[in-house]
Design a protein around this nucleic acid. Structure first.
Lengths: 256, 256
DNA sequence: GAGTGGTCTAGACCACAAA
DNA sequence: TTGTGGTCTAGACCACTCT
């Protein structure tokens, strides 16, 4: 180990740091298998439990993933898709492509989605605030899980006021060419502005399962509100996005 | 426990989920102390090690924090500061307030910063790309740790081309009224646009220490590039931001 | 079947906090 | 001094992968 006997840090931390440094300086490359737990225990003269704890720490840092029966591996970073505001360009969905697929294809990925729920529900507080209605008012929700390159990457729930989606394909599973935005325009809402608010946190247990997140992967909580030219909020989307597959980009003029 | 004997999930997971649900539905409130490890072990008839592992899972989810000698507590979420593009408003720094303090004060917080390094260094790749220079070209860097309400919240490193900061207060610890942006304008660079790129990840060990991050707290990796009216990149800032103290907001017109 | 990681137990000893 | 969480050990048994 790189540290002397006077090092007061716990064994597990020292071991984890040793391995982390080997990963950071390239001695261990993404995809490489680490020595087995037994080998690490023997090599560092510590118990198996200490080795396990050290590996746990690295998993929490998102540097290592385990595969039962195979070994521990230096994590390979999935190529993050870049999300810029250009993904909302009207020309895209007016030409019949849904935002999700248009953006993925533009970056050489494949995308798809699975509907989880299509229903009338009471508006949650955060949605009601943004739509300018009372909490609990019935609204229409589309809950879907989106996939990129076969991996789930986002749990996205879109909420609409009932009169807005009345008689539109937004109430159906398949929204037709151009997706929900195109249907909102068909219904007379010329779209104008988007507000995006982000927070970051760790996933809950169920979210980890639904998004197949490796340990040590945070999620981005996104609230997106879409406004039409009259300033009315016509859609609120709440999304939980796998943190390791996302990169956001914004460019704007410095305000006066 | 809320689950039956046929539940195949590991004990530690079931225990963690039980506690998580109690937190989510308000039976356990932020700041509340959990039962001691011994009590949980006795109540659920499992070994101490299982209880520890369950608590570990909750810590990884950012729901629980431990205090040695005191107990385990439901985590209190620090009030996240909201970061919108209005924080860059010219009127703010032209009136002599630094961005950091102006934004914090506007939201009822106190802010400060500590200089970690002020030096000439070779440009890292990510900086060089954005400044449009070759990797390794000498650049000026200001590394500082910013604090909000007494807690470190950000490791921020700003890079500048040498000619840009030549003879300015940007090379000094105290940049004077209005901060770095004001000095760039004094030097003839009228600022125009900002590009912000974010990723999210778990902190490394040293970052956890520097930002005093509780377990289960992700960080936001921000790259901010500032352009003057001629389109030249005059500053690149790389920041590592404590994920639990930040909320980002952007509002923009839908592009054509 | 052999190898490897995951779960679980029982128990010793240390570090920190509060009374 | 007592209570509480943190570190560490030794070992049993299970689940998954590969040959």
């Amino acid at each position: 180990m790189s540290t002397g006997p006077t090092d007061a840090r716990p064994l597990q931390v020292r071991l984890a740091d040793d391995i982390r440094i080997q990963i950071e300086n390239g001695q261990l490359k993404p995809g490489d298998r680490l020595p087995t737990l037994d080998e690490l225990a023997a090599a560092h003269m510590v118990s198996l439990a200490v080795v396990r704890k050290a590996i746990d720490l690295l998993k929490q840092q998102g540097l290592v993933v385990s595969q039962q029966g195979k070994g521990n591996f230096v994590r390979e970073r999935p190529s993050a898709r870049r999300h810029g505001i250009e993904r909302y360009a009207k020309s895209r969905w007016r030409s019949g492509k849904a935002i999700l697929t248009a953006e993925a294809e533009a970056q050489g990925h494949t995308a798809g989605q699975m509907m989880r729920e299509l229903a009338e529900v009471p508006a949650p507080k955060i949605v009601a605030e943004r739509l300018g209605i009372s909490e609990g008012t019935p609204v229409w929700v589309r809950r879907r899980t989106t996939h990129v390159d076969g991996r789930p990457n986002q749990l996205a729930d879109s909420y609409y006021e009932l009169p807005v989606v009345e008689g539109t394909l937004i109430r159906e599973e398949n929204t037709g060419p151009g997706g929900g935005y195109a249907r909102l325009e068909d219904a007379g809402h010329e779209l104008d502005e988007i507000s995006e608010e982000w927070r970051v946190r760790m996933p809950t247990g169920p979210e980890s399962v639904a998004l197949a997140l490796p340990a040590g992967t945070p999620v981005v909580d996104l609230t997106r509100t879409t406004y039409d030219v009259s300033g009315r909020a016509v859609e609120v989307m709440l999304a939980v996005i796998s943190g390791d597959m996302v990169q956001m980009a914004y460019r704007f003029k410095i305000p006066d």
